[in-house]
């Protein structure tokens, strides 16, 4: 799992990545200095829960991924049934490339989990 995260972090503009469960507990993380994994995991879990509430469950919509773009970076996370893969990038990062790499990495993580 660490190796999978390291491959993600090799992408230009990526500041770190981590895997958390739906409750916000950190499964595995590979973050650069200055980023607190507990804070990030708690925030991601909170946003995830809010989005799940907002989605219409009667229509069978399942959350697959979220991108939050801010002035000093972005947070991208992909949702699996048991975990959330989260990546933190710098402002000029290639979000598309990161997203493709994240999807491949999530499939690998799901096989491991």
């Amino acid at each position: 799992m660490k190796e999978i995260l390291n491959q993600i972090n090799e992408i230009s503009g990526v500041k770190g990545s981590l895997v958390v469960d739906n409750e916000g507990l950190v499964v595995v993380s590979n973050l650069m200095s200055g980023l607190e994994e507990r804070t990030i995991s708690a925030m991601v879990a909170g946003i995830y829960q809010e989005i799940i509430k907002a989605l219409r469950p009667e229509q069978g919509s399942e959350l697959s991924g979220v991108q939050l773009s801010a002035s000093e970076g972005s947070i991208i996370f992909l949702c699996a049934p048991e975990c959330i893969l989260t990546v933190i990038t710098e402002p000029g990062a290639n979000i598309g490339l990161v997203s493709i790499k994240m999807k491949a990495s999530l499939e690998r993580l799901m096989k491991i989990l």
């Binding site: 909170g46 919509s61 399942e62 939050l68 773009s69 801010a70 002035s71 970076g73 947070i75």
Partner: peptide
């Protein structure tokens, strides 16, 4: 919620959110 979260993570002010679901 996301705006406050990104502030705490020190990523600046939230500009946009893209939420992807199955459909």
């Amino acid at each position: 919620t996301a705006f406050e979260a990104l502030k705490k993570i020190k990523l600046g002010e939230l500009e946009r959110i893209v939420i992807e679901t199955g459909d």
